[in-house]
Design a protein around this nucleic acid. Structure first.
Lengths: 161, 161
DNA sequence: CAGATTTAAATGCATTTGCAAATATCCCGT
DNA sequence: ACGGGATATTTGCAAATGCATTTAAATCTG
């Protein structure tokens, strides 16, 4: 447990006005990701890729043959929405669904060669947005930032993945 | 310009697989905010508050009488969605729309006493989520984290607000 | 091992969303 | 002062979303 940690948690009785929006991390993160996701969405729209489809492809480019339920967590997409996104990706030949070997309720998702190729073409745009985001922020700072994000995710995640 | 900054930007030609999802800041931020927003949304649902309504109230508790267009940026909500959320908040007496004094196209939004009271009751839940998020992260680290977020927002924001 | 419970995924359906168009007003140049 | 374009907000409408349900299969329990 980390309850005895010397790190003082933010006081729960502070008002939002006292913190100020521009010092309130969740606000800033929503602002940043709102813009990031919107700009990515606009760029992907040309390629016929919605946000759920793009995220699924991105995760599949890195994680091999996850269950649909796992993919939903990684891609941060509701499972029912993901199910429909996978229908489209499968119809376009970018992924393939395959029944799990040992649990026939479950389905594993595989990215196809075509899917990988599609992701190769869209990754540079994601990388560009990423680079713009961190412009003027050196590697040490970025590392520290990512380290804090990892702690935060561990704090709030519900699933063990 | 900051182009000559000594900070080396993340290389645009790195693959996502090389970085790894768990070191990729946008992924982590989407995961964290996805969970944070979902849990808040569930809690607010009881109170009859959608995410756009809750965000509008939160911003209005801090920023006085913004234009609707400004409120949309701060609340990270599409303006047409916000317009409808404001209809509901006004019907519930939590906000008031008032024509701008000098520009009769524009509308300023005011939080009412009832709106402030409602926000007072929901803020503790937001503060709790915030505290959980930063559990085990000390103040210095949180400050540094917020500092990086502020730089990132400056990098990617489109509006000057 | 039968029946009850849980889990995985897909689907029906009502709600929400966001784009594009409509409306109203302002601002600029001439 | 007038016409053309810009700006603020609302609204119509089609598409996307997510909750709840369904279907199917696994697991637990007595």
């Amino acid at each position: 447990m980390t309850d005895q940690s010397p790190a003082k948690p933010p006081p729960t009785d502070t008002r939002l006005g006292e913190i100020g929006l521009s010092n309130y991390a969740p606000y800033l993160m929503n602002r940043i990701m709102g813009r990031y996701n919107a700009s990515l969405r606009d760029e992907m729209a040309d390629l016929g890729l919605s946000t759920p489809k793009m995220r699924a492809l991105a995760v599949l480019s890195v994680i091999d043959a996850p269950l649909i339920r796992e993919l939903a967590v990684y891609a941060v997409v509701e499972q029912s929405t993901l199910s429909r996104a996978l229908d489209q990706l499968a119809a376009e030949g970018l992924i393939r669904r395959e029944a799990d070997a040992t649990d026939s309720r479950a389905t594993r998702v595989f990215i196809t060669e075509a899917g990988r190729t599609t992701f190769e073409t869209l990754w540079p745009r994601m990388a560009e947005s990423y680079a713009r985001m961190f412009k003027g922020i050196d590697e040490a700072e970025r590392r520290a930032f990512v380290g804090t994000l990892q702690k935060m995710l561990a704090n709030i995640r519900k699933h063990e993945i």
